[in-house]
């Protein structure tokens, strides 16, 4: 057997292991029966349609969307200036600041959720939604800073100086010269942040209350109660959504270099 074929087989097996399960859920969701089986009992779209009618899925989808969109925007509002300061200024304690901002990536999410529940929600009366919003913002912030930093580092700093010498204020130089040139980095940061936030589970575990659940948490609890193919259908839909987002992002931004 030639080494070319060995190589194809190895890649094929790995991809089957990584991606095959998705194909299976897509099919499992198409089942016409009432229980999860594979191969499915006949083919129907009823579970895919049912997903849209389950009230709790709609509510939790709305919450997850809200967190992913506004948490990421908040993270960018905090993160872009921070990334700019780190790449353009010689600020004191730069390393400490970087470590603090990067910490949320390293700290396991479940601890974050528990800590916020115990010290912000319970004693200070923060609503669960607010706590979730803050947690998601903090969680996305490191990605925002990292991605924006890397696109700032590819941009020469003397452009801003040139703009200032032509009469721009410092903020003007940032808006007119820097921002247009890091657009795709900011967009990539948004997408990465959105996906990270939307898929986030452990942080939200403790931070959910009656009526306040993110979609993945809702799916987990739905799974515990019911064994019908609607979660499979929903999983397949979410996977589709991710694939489309990533495909479009890759096509227009060369997204994978930012991941």
């Amino acid at each position: 057997m030639s080494s070319k074929w060995t190589s194809r087989i190895i890649i094929g097996i790995t991809l089957t292991f990584l991606i095959g399960p998705f194909l299976i859920i897509i099919l499992a969701g198409l089942s016409a029966g009432d229980f999860m089986t594979f191969p499915p009992d006949g083919i129907s779209l009823k579970w895919y349609l049912k997903v849209f009618t389950v009230e709790s899925f709609r509510a939790s989808f709305a919450l997850s969307m809200f967190l992913a969109v506004f948490g990421t925007i908040a993270a960018l509002i905090l993160g872009i200036p921070a990334a700019y300061a780190i790449s353009r200024y010689d600020i004191p304690y730069a390393e400490t600041i970087k470590t603090i901002v990067a910490a949320p990536i390293i700290v396991p999410g479940i601890i974050v959720g528990l800590a916020l529940l115990r010290y912000l929600v319970v004693p200070l009366g923060f609503t669960v939604t607010l706590a979730l919003f803050l947690a998601h913002t903090a969680l996305v912030l490191p990605y925002a800073v990292r991605v924006v930093s890397s696109s700032l580092n590819n941009l020469r700093g003397d452009m801003e100086e040139a703009a200032v010498l032509l009469g721009c204020s410092r903020i003007g130089a940032f808006m007119r010269v820097v921002l247009p040139n890091i657009q795709s980095g900011v967009l990539a940061a948004f997408i990465l942040g959105f996906v990270t936030s939307f898929n986030q589970v452990p942080v939200s575990l403790f931070l959910s209350g009656p009526g306040v659940r993110t979609l993945p948490i809702d799916m987990l609890s739905y799974m515990e109660m019911t064994y019908d193919p609607s979660v499979a259908a929903l999983s397949a839909l979410l996977a589709f959504l991710s694939v489309i987002i990533v495909f479009v992002a890759e096509k227009f931004l060369g997204f994978s270099r930012y991941v």
């Binding site: 020469r156 003397d158 100086e161 010498l165 247009p180 040139n181």
Partner: peptide
């Protein structure tokens, strides 16, 4: 710097790529 009315031609030219 933005009020001095001085021009500077940078070594890297510092043109605005967009």
């Amino acid at each position: 710097a933005n009020k001095r009315g001085i021009g500077l031609v940078f070594q890297s030219y510092a043109l605005f790529p967009h």
